[in-house]
Design a protein around this nucleic acid. Sequence first.
DNA 1: GCTTTTAGCTAACGACATTAGCCATGGAGG
DNA 2: CCTCCATGGCTAATGTCGTTAGCTAAAAGC
Lengths: 186, 186
Amino acid sequence: MPRAGLDPAAVVAAAAGLADEIGLANVTMGALAERLGVRAPSLYKHVTGQADLNHRIAALALTELGDALRDALQGRAGRDALGAAARAMRAFVVEHPGRYAATLPLNATGPDDPVAVAGARVLDSLAAVLTGYPLDPADTVHALRLLRSLFVGFAAIESAGGFEMDTSTDESFEWLIAFVDRGLRA
Amino acid sequence: MPRAGLDPAAVVAAAAGLADEIGLANVTMGALAERLGVRAPSLYKHVTGQADLNHRIAALALTELGDALRDALQGRAGRDALGAAARAMRAFVVEHPGRYAATLPLNATGPDDPVAVAGARVLDSLAAVLTGYPLDPADTVHALRLLRSLFVGFAAIESAGGFEMDTSTDESFEWLIAFVDRGLRA
DNA sequence: GCTTTTAGCTAACGACATTAGCCATGGAGG
DNA sequence: CCTCCATGGCTAATGTCGTTAGCTAAAAGC
């Protein structure tokens, strides 16, 4: 038996890729093992089980999303930053629906959990967007939750194919950004 | 063997109740059968399988949600209606997290699918809320999607326990309603 | 080179969804 | 009241999946 040279990171990366292709729910241990050229029980040498696997996919996804946000926000402020952040999040979900889906259960176990760390970085980026607006500090948390809810909800509905009407989804998305921008300036 | 006197509606109702108690993912055929005092294979006399079961739970939930919205919107308009609708939706999700979760996949098969019919009724109620605002008709669809995204996202994050910070979630929710109300009037 | 670690394997178990096929219930018609 | 038959319940069995136990050979350290 020649060794496959796997490690946890490789397993998680393959799982995330597979999730994007066939959907998170279809990432069975068997399917993942096959993609890695290995038998299913071997995966348990790198990951304690499916829960752990999903958790790690979520951490990976949040880290990547945090990086994407940082890149998108470089040198931008105000409405520019808001639009860039919104589009970056939406693009990430569209391009990586599987790994993104792993982030929804939000099962961080503690402050040192990679999921919590990466999630906090994402929130920091959203908070940075808000600094470009004249907000009462007491309202910052509320505004942050507004952005989060909006992005999460839009992504959920869009990826579930829920915007049936024929009006363009892109157009609605830009309208939402403009709406929030207007509201945050008042 | 005494008959249990089941029918599809009873099975779906029990499944929805069980989902609210233990989570939709834990509603196995075995667990549902046990609750109904029956063996698992017997359920297939009333429902074609788990996919069908989830689908019917979704239809039930959307119907109930539609009713709740109608009730909440009786005789209200403008900000009053917006707040009532928002609180009704949030209350429904909090009280019935399991059956609500079944509605997220949004897998309507056609226009005559009960899921589509009940979903359309929910959207009608939200559209009714918007008639109280001076909106360009071309923007109505966008505003509708705004409301939907916001409610779905907030519910998803809240029920996943994602609002870690110590600021009150209730307060944020009311802030969101006020924010949207302000924006829709401009 | 020898030992120790460890990544991979096969075999096996338990939970679950689903199908096949049997049998008793209980309502409809005589 | 009796018979018939549609139907709701059952047991048994299959296939898939996650997971554990225990073996073996490849690599890594001395």
